[in-house]
Amino acid sequence: MPLTPDEVRRVAMLARIELSEPEIATAQAQLNSIFSLIETLQATDTKGVTPMSHAGDLVARLREDRVTEIDQRDRFQSVAPQVERGLYLVPRVIE
């Protein structure tokens, strides 16, 4: 089922990627060609097959509840676009 320009816009918004109108048209064409490849999955009967979300059937190893990290704020914030008094600054958030 081919994607419409509106679906491309919706997905781009979900992914927070600005697309111009020409870019939407290009993306639509390319995504549809990729989805024609992906659609071949639908033909296979997978009834009763458990989805495989990890590369092996292992279970998590847990860590003990201990503080192991030290403060590295200055180091981390030396590469930040905008900081003030230890805070990362962003355009105003409206709730």
Binding site: E84, R85, G86, L87, Y88, L89, V90, P91, R92
Partner: peptide, 13 residues
């Protein structure tokens, strides 16, 4: 998110 004191910006802790 801290909304005060940053000239119209939001501070993130």
């Amino acid at each position: 998110s801290l909304h005060e004191d940053f000239q119209g910006l939001t501070g993130i802790d």
